[in-house]
């Protein structure tokens, strides 16, 4: 790769760097598809309340389980609600909650990981033991417990998801930090007498940032998967707010004769997860990080 240095580059602004990364991502077909899907869903999340043709919570017993028609594009559900309306609205909550959840995961996981990697020794041992212990409790059990005792409000879900999906980031950030602190430029900074804070901020973070961001992007897709599983089990978004996981779970029992009510949210949710995943993949490749060797912990 050293051969590409011949095209000398100058220092770039953060914005220029970002747009360059996005262009690299979009230059592969899979990255382009992923980005388009993601952008589509994000735009949809913003505009769907204004374009929805029907009221998402209008119950009408006379319209129960109607097949798709010109009026009701995707048919109606068991309460006579328009499936199309509910489908285009059904990603908003999930998208918002998991986005902020990932941010929290990224922050606490990344910082704790860097800290552990840097100080090492006993503190590191103890923290990693505890992180390991949290890892060994299945996330779904822990999440279900928290949600069932504290409720399903956004203020509970975001920090809870953020906490449980941040554990894995701790490990990644710690490993990345370990790789970096062995390098001579850190030794050199220490020998010069820079403070720990300055070393973390100037030397470590710029060098582990990419790995942690990629990890965060991966977490996002897993968190979405986890969150919709919760919804599906009835522990996520509470009705009547439309949500794909919940819609799938409700329509499942009736799918032998009203498959449309289940297909529409399935397509919505799957496409979003795949979109995020492909984007995360392309992001990793654009930054030169191989993400496929990692377990989804």
């Amino acid at each position: 790769m050293k051969l590409d240095n011949i095209y000398k580059e100058e220092k770039k602004s953060a914005f220029a760097k970002l747009s360059e990364i996005i262009i690299t991502m979009a230059s592969r077909p899979s990255g382009l598809i992923g980005l388009s899907i993601l952008v589509f869903h994000i735009i949809l999340a913003f505009i769907s309340p204004y374009i929805a043709p029907h009221d998402f919570k209008a119950i009408d017993p006379t319209l129960m389980l109607q097949a798709p028609s010109a009026e009701y594009w995707f048919g109606t559900d068991d309460l006579g609600r328009d499936v199309f309306t509910r489908t285009i609205l059904g990603g908003r909550t999930a998208l918002t909650i998991t986005f902020f959840g990932s941010l929290i995961a990224l922050l606490w996981g990344g910082l704790l990981g860097i800290f552990c990697g840097l100080v090492g020794g006993k503190i590191d041992d103890v923290v990693m033991r505890i992180v390991d212990a949290f890892l060994s409790i299945p996330w779904i059990l822990a999440m279900l417990l928290i949600v069932s005792l504290l409720g399903t409000s956004t203020e509970v879900l975001i920090p809870a998801l953020g906490f449980f999906y941040g554990k894995g980031i701790v490990r990644v950030a710690r490993a990345a930090t370990h790789d970096v602190i062995a390098k001579d430029f850190i030794v050199s900074a220490r020998a010069r007498g820079h403070s720990n804070f300055s070393i973390i901020w100037n030397e470590i973070i710029p060098n582990v940032r990419d790995a942690i961001l990629v990890e965060g992007a991966m977490r996002w897709s897993w968190m979405l998967l986890g969150f919709s599983s919760l919804s599906f089990l009835g522990f996520g978004v509470s009705p009547p707010t439309p949500d794909w996981g919940l819609m799938i779970s409700n329509a499942r029992g009736l799918m032998s004769f009203a498959y449309w009510a289940v297909i529409a949210p399935i397509v919505g949710l799957s496409s979003l997860i795949i979109g995020i995943n492909l984007t995360a993949d392309a992001f990793a490749k654009a930054l030169g990080i191989d993400r496929s060797t990692k377990a989804p912990v």
Binding site: S30, G245, I248, I266, S270, N277
Partner: peptide
């Protein structure tokens, strides 16, 4: 990539 990303409850439902 598809098999990996689609949640179990969706593949099971399908």
């Amino acid at each position: 990539i598809f098999a990996m990303t689609i949640p179990e409850f969706i593949s099971a439902t399908l």
